[in-house]
């Protein structure tokens, strides 16, 4: 474990001389996988090599260095770009049906089967 941290630290030191040459940290990868590259067609920020995505990754790294947690970073981006940027829609009045409807259907279907089947 210690070695792992050391390796990461070395990467980071090398990277900080020239930010664009740094290997992205795992955290950045993890966050950028959940972001839509808004100027691409259906790619995530993580997958894209567009200018937009590259800058976004640097920004995420910067925010992590500032000590922001995942939630704060997502919120920041949502305030700038709207809900569209995150792949994982949060549950609010707009999306409650999205999350709940499949579950309701499952329960409903289960009840239907239960009624048909005799337990004896």
């Amino acid at each position: 474990m210690k070695i792992k941290i050391l390796v990461l630290a070395i990467f980071y030191l090398i990277g900080s001389f020239n930010l664009s040459n740094a290997a992205n940290s795992e955290k950045v990868d993890q966050i950028s996988k959940n972001l839509r590259c808004l100027i691409c067609q259906g790619q995530s920020v993580y997958d894209s090599q567009s200018d937009f995505a590259l800058s976004m990754k640097i920004l995420i790294q910067k925010k992590i260095d500032e000590g922001k947690n995942d939630e704060q970073i997502y919120d920041f981006l949502k305030s700038k770009y709207g809900e569209w940027i995150v792949y994982d829609p949060e549950i609010n009045k707009n999306t409650v049906l999205l999350w709940v409807l499949p579950l309701i259907l499952f329960v409903f279907g289960g009840l239907l089967i239960f009624r048909k089947v005799s337990i004896k």
Binding site: D51, F52, S55, I58, L59, K80
Partner: peptide
């Protein structure tokens, strides 16, 4: 140069 400021402004490109 890194494009980060533009992202902070909420820019697309």
């Amino acid at each position: 140069p890194s494009g980060v400021n533009s992202i902070e402004l909420g820019a697309y490109g």
